[in-house]
Design a binder for these strands. Structure first.
Length: 496
RNA sequence: GGCCCGUUCGUCUAUCGGUUAGGACGUUAGGUUUUCAUCCUAGAAAGAGGGGUUCGACUCCCCUACGGGCUACCA
């Protein structure tokens, strides 16, 4: 049977990397089996809706290359894919459960339930709305038909699942059989007073109606698994397979990664920017690097290979490689993987991914961009490093590494050396510069390293950077001479 | 508190009863380079603890500890 999986986020904020990874594993699982990937937006909590976050989710998935086959914007055979547009379906289904005596109306007020909870709490106990308490509570199980009708018309109500005592055994493809005693379950609300279904109900109805074969979701749902099984059983529906993924944990300290950890740890938490928060993309991640890192967080291909793009991952993915324990997010490793991806790019590909980062360079060096990119490419961990690395191509050094100059001056007459370099460039240009400077070193008995360092400081302002001879060739003779003169002036002005 | 899941270097992980417990990030020391980066070489670094089962346990079972999740008219 063809696999059908779904990623079902709720639009209560931007998708974060945990959600992205869940989507990724869903995608890899189904695509490795030639199956279908469905995006369903679970917007049943009307209070926590965040405007545009559903659009953000689609955009972020699209950036990552995780393209749904069916989704709210694409549509599909089993739509609509936005739960708020499926209310009539849930209404119809809940009637079935009530008619079958699997669900019932409950009229208890928040205040009353709150009172019961705190009463129990005082005794160190926990109040549960379940088979042991439901008879003494305000619900349709304890009244006759006519009363129920009048209460429904008069009062607000919820609809609860009728969970009976017993044991429920659930299966997770990763973890095997998981046993639960129904006494830990309660009569979960299926439909809220506002008429919207709860997650549990809408989720099961939709998974069934959308013919989902395998549910892959975060481990936080594992305790709800027996409940979900019970809802399926109440309808008499066949259950899908379940896989509960280990969670992504904070890089330091305890707990699962939350949206606040990013700011604290200096790393993004969202794929794309959201309001004031920079995303991985804006920080200079390639989506392939992001995906590569996320895939390795809780999964491994069974080999020592670590470099993968999406297509590789689809070919290699197997649930045998899934991990059971949570994994801490490691930004250093994420950056290293991104670097490996950046390293395989040429200028055109870099421009496609980060067009805004190359505008100035393209304007100033329209024909040399590819060469300049190759010169600095191995120095990039993040695409954001690019602007820093090419800064000196765009403008003359604004200041100089004075400590380095002082050190050179303590051993050499730097002004004389600069003049000698100038003479060489003046006479021979910047082609064969290295050979010419080497000859200069021999003829005048000047330390070669000092010559190169002074050239570097004049062109770049500091002692680090790419091959300085190539830099000189790229900025050409006149600009090389100009910057040598600038440095000479700077040294003269700072002598006193 | 109750229930459920988990536990191999600092971190991500390999190992499917017999290995000098392997790789990667990070880190340390060298080398290459005009410098930094890249690259190369080498090093330090792990089976939570206790019981079993077994000729033999990181691997299977139990207990404890620790970590995580859930315990809403949130998902």
């Amino acid at each position: 049977m063809k696999e059908r999986v779904r990623f079902a986020p709720s639009p209560t904020g931007p998708l974060h990397i945990g959600g992205l990874r869940t989507a990724l594993f869903n995608y890899l699982y189904t695509k490795s089996r030639n199956g279908t990937f469905i995006l369903r937006i679970e917007d049943t909590d009307r209070n926590r809706l965040v405007k545009n976050s559903d659009k953000y989710i689609e955009k972020a998935l699209s950036w990552a290359g995780i393209i749904p086959d069916e989704s709210p914007s694409l549509g599909g055979e089993y739509g609509p894919y936005m739960q708020s547009e499926r209310i009539s379906i849930y209404n119809e289904k809940i009637e079935l459960l009530i008619a079958a005596d699997k669900a019932y109306y409950a009229f208890d007020t928040d205040e009353e339930l709150g009172r019961l909870r705190s009463e129990k709490e005082k005794k160190g106990l926990v109040f549960k709305y379940d088979y042991s308490t439901r008879c003494s509570l305000d619900n349709s199980l304890s009244m006759n038909g006519e009363d129920i009708d009048t209460r429904i018309k008069k009062d607000s109500f919820v609809i609860r699942l009728k969970v009976n005592s017993g044991k429920t055994i659930s299966e997770d493809l990763l973890r095997g059989l998981v046993h639960f005693d129904n006494s830990v379950l309660d009569d979960k609300i299926l439909v809220k007073t506002d008429g919207f279904p709860t997650y549990h109900f809408a989720n099961i109805v939709d998974d069934h109606l959308m013919k989902i074969t395998t549910v892959i979701r975060g481990e936080e749902w594992l305790p709800s698994l027996p409940l979900h099984g019970l809802i399926h059983e109440a309808f008499g529906w066949e259950k899908p397979n379940y896989i509960h993924l280990p969670l992504i944990l904070k890089p330091y300290g305890k707990g699962k990664l939350s949206k606040r950890d990013g700011a604290k740890g200096g790393f993004p938490i969202f794929p794309l920017s959201w309001e004031k928060d920079e995303g991985f993309k804006e920080m200079g991640f390639l989506s392939s690097g992001m995906i590569n890192y996320l895939a390795l967080l809780g999964w491994n291909p069974g080999s020592d290979d670590e470099f993968f793009n999406l297509d590789d991952l689809i070919k290699l993915f197997n649930i045998k490689g899934l991990q059971k324990g949570g994994a801490k997010f490691d930004f250093e490793k994420a950056k290293w993987i991104n670097q490996q991806h950046l390293l395989r790019l040429d200028f055109n590909e870099f421009e496609i991914n980060f067009p805004e980062r190359v505008i100035d360079l393209k304007n100033k060096y329209p024909s040399k961009c590819a060469e300049i990119f190759l010169l600095v490419r191995e120095r990039l961990k993040l695409a954001g490093d690019f602007e820093k690395e090419i800064e000196f191509f765009l403008k003359d050094p604004a200041d100089y590494d004075q400590k380095a100059i002082n050190k050179l001056r303590s051993k050499n007459d730097v002004e004389v050396i600069i003049k000698e370099i100038e003479a060489v460039v003046e006479k021979n240009g910047v082609d064969r510069l290295k050979e010419n400077l080497s000859t200069l070193s021999g003829n005048k008995n000047i330390n070669f390293g000092s010559i190169m360092q002074l050239l570097r400081i004049s062109l770049v302002g500091k002692l680090s950077g790419p091959d300085i001879v190539k830099v000189s060739v790229l900025i050409e003779k006149s600009l090389t001479l100009k910057r040598l003169a600038n440095l000479k002036n700077h040294i003269k002005n700072n002598l006193s």
